[in-house]
């Protein structure tokens, strides 16, 4: 067997491969889900267990490590709280409560920990999410890089939004400008920080967006995801393969801020593979697509756009096709490996 590399954790093809090899393949089917619910049989944003009254208990878990732990636009605490809320939402759940598990490196400043927790509490508080349990551990200096926060999100769904239900004819909607978080973190983390920049993470909980949409258009929403690690490219490719469809998006329509676009261009990075932490991607029925965008606009998400549509797949492969700005077509692959800048 080989060794684990950073590529295995970057949310792309390699991660799917290692999960398949290490986990999915080695578990019998009955262990992968609770009857009538959703589990790792079709890995989605969260898992679900039927409550017996038609509703579902939605649960998600995620470990957050980010370097640097304070970045333009937020910190690891805000990220952990927002991320777990968003994962519950993307399955159609209304987030109710959360648990956290914090592991800190010996010597970590109390002040910083307090600030991180303040940010985390603030997000939970403003979204009405209770923090009902947790764990706290300290690791000897050098055995952990500063801090890792794991959050569990719990919620209730009237009905589930499961990405494999995406159907030909559905429209794809992006709620806001993409790649903001990825570009900001990349700049801060890899030391490719421009002298001056407007790069800023978009990390935020999306409850104010998703709950009203689910209440009004729930049955018309066939898929929902937040394009975190692996970005839009990863989300759309997972959708296409989970639903056995082909997705065609129009590059011109994808919301992207100039500063992010220009930063990506400078380093030769592809914004389609960079993370967002405050954007939702939805697959909705065609007849309500425009209405949904208007509703999003009225909720303050003024950059929302219909970026493409779902089609019957041609041949065997579930592809994502991009209509380029100049009018050509290319295939959008899921991201591969560690993201590095290029000069060639």
């Amino acid at each position: 067997m080989g060794k684990i590399t950073l590529a295995h954790g970057s949310g792309g093809k390699e991660m799917n491969e290692i999960l398949e090899k290490m986990i999915f393949k080695r578990l019998p089917d009955w262990m992968k889900l609770v009857d009538g619910g959703l589990g790792i049989d079709f890995p989605d944003d969260a898992a679900a267990i039927p409550l017996g009254d038609g509703r579902y208990f939605v649960v998600t878990i995620d470990s957050y490590t980010v370097d640097p732990i304070f970045f333009p636009g937020g910190n690891i605490g805000k990220l952990a709280a927002s991320g777990t809320i968003n994962d519950v939402l993307m399955l159609g759940g209304n987030p109710v409560a959360a648990l956290d598990s914090i592991v800190v490196e010996e010597g970590f400043e109390e002040d910083l920990l307090k600030e991180i927790l303040d940010s985390m509490f603030e997000v939970f508080k403003s979204n009405g999410v209770k923090l009902i349990g947790g764990d706290f551990k300290v690791m000897p200096r050098g055995q952990l890089d500063k801090i890792v926060i794991t959050t569990v999100g719990l919620g209730i769904a009237e009905h589930l939004i499961v990405d494999k239900n995406l159907k030909p004819g559905d429209k794809v909607i992006v709620s806001g400008k993409i790649a903001e978080h990825g570009a900001a973190i990349y700049a801060a983390q890899k030391g490719f920080m421009p002298e001056e920049s407007e790069l800023r993470s978009d990390v935020k909980p999306l409850k104010d967006l998703i709950i009203p949409l689910v209440e009004k258009y729930g049955k018309y929403i066939s898929a929902a995801s937040d394009p975190t690690r692996g970005g839009l490219a990863m989300v759309l490719n997972s959708w296409a393969s989970a639903s056995g469809t082909m997705i065609v998006i129009d590059e011109e329509k994808v919301p992207l801020r100039d500063a992010v676009k220009n930063y990506c261009e400078l380093l030769g990075l592809d914004p389609f593979v960079l993370a967002s932490e405050g954007v939702a991607v939805l697959g909705v029925k065609e007849k309500v697509a425009k209405e949904v965008v208007e509703e999003m606009n009225s909720l303050g998400y003024t950059d929302a756009e219909i970026v493409g549509e779902v089609k019957e797949k041609e041949g065997d492969a579930s592809l994502v096709i991009v209509k380029t700005r100049i009018g050509g077509y290319r295939i959008l692959e899921p991201p591969l490996g560690e993201i590095v800048p290029r000069i060639c």
Binding site: P194, E195, E196, S197, A259, G268, I343
Partner: peptide, 28 residues
């Protein structure tokens, strides 16, 4: 070969210059 990006020169200091790439400024 040779990824090249357009920008506008803001300041020149000998062989170094600050270039604006549109919301992103780099020393080159």
């Amino acid at each position: 070969m040779c990824w090249g990006v357009y920008g506008k020169v803001l300041e020149v200091h000998g062989e170094r210059a600050y270039v604006d790439f549109g919301g992103v400024v780099e020393e080159v």
